[in-house]
Amino acid sequence: MSSSSHFKRPPLQQSGPVRNSMAPPANVPRQGAPQDMFTTAGAAVCGVLENGVRTAYAVIDDYMRRGQEAARTIFNDPNRRGYMSDDRGSFPGGFNPGGGFGPTNPMNMLAEQWMLMMRAWSNACAGFVPGQWQGMNPFANAGSHAATVTVSISSSCQVEVTANLYPGADIQALVSEPLRAEGSAASIDSASVVREGFNVRITVKVGDKQAAGVYRGNIRRKTDGNVAGELTVVVR
């Protein structure tokens, strides 16, 4: 078959000058330029190599740009997290929340139905858990929420608190075990861990007679009791 009879994609629209592989990108904010990338690879810089990498940068720049444009078109929000960041416009019947499905193949339709079912299921489950997501769409602000931890300490002596929360702990209902001493001292029973939205509040009360030492306890999920982190208190 001759090449003239082949489907041809429209020529790519370059949003900026093709990046020289040794220079910083023109249209994407970056923290630095890859001046040392060839020396770190142990490869000699030459025209052939430079052209190859330049082409690769042009390809990935264009791919990213199309994705960002598609995301802006669909959500009018360039900061939305990356799910829609590819060029979904090129996908007939691409995922279209609230807009139904366009013509597409059965597997894609199944995949999208599946995702919608999972969202509905997740929302339904969330309704039974106090303090779970308040909105209909649990993903709406997922990218903009980093977990924060607030620590309240009530003590007459110097105390150091370290909390190690495993991934996902900030979206679980939590409970703290009593903090047991490494030695024979009495445990600290008054530690509590409460999740409030995307904030985890840790409260530790240390009595005047609490012996100096290191006290440790697991933070567990209320729902199934699995360990969600560790709490360490050092009383000096």
Binding site: D36, T40, V48, L49, G52
Partner: peptide, 20 residues
């Protein structure tokens, strides 16, 4: 030889992107 050189260049770019 050309493809091997391009692969080296891309690996270098990967190292740079890793550092970023």
């Amino acid at each position: 030889h050309y493809a091997r050189q391009v692969a080296h260049g891309l690996a270098g770019a990967a190292q740079y992107e890793f550092s970023q």
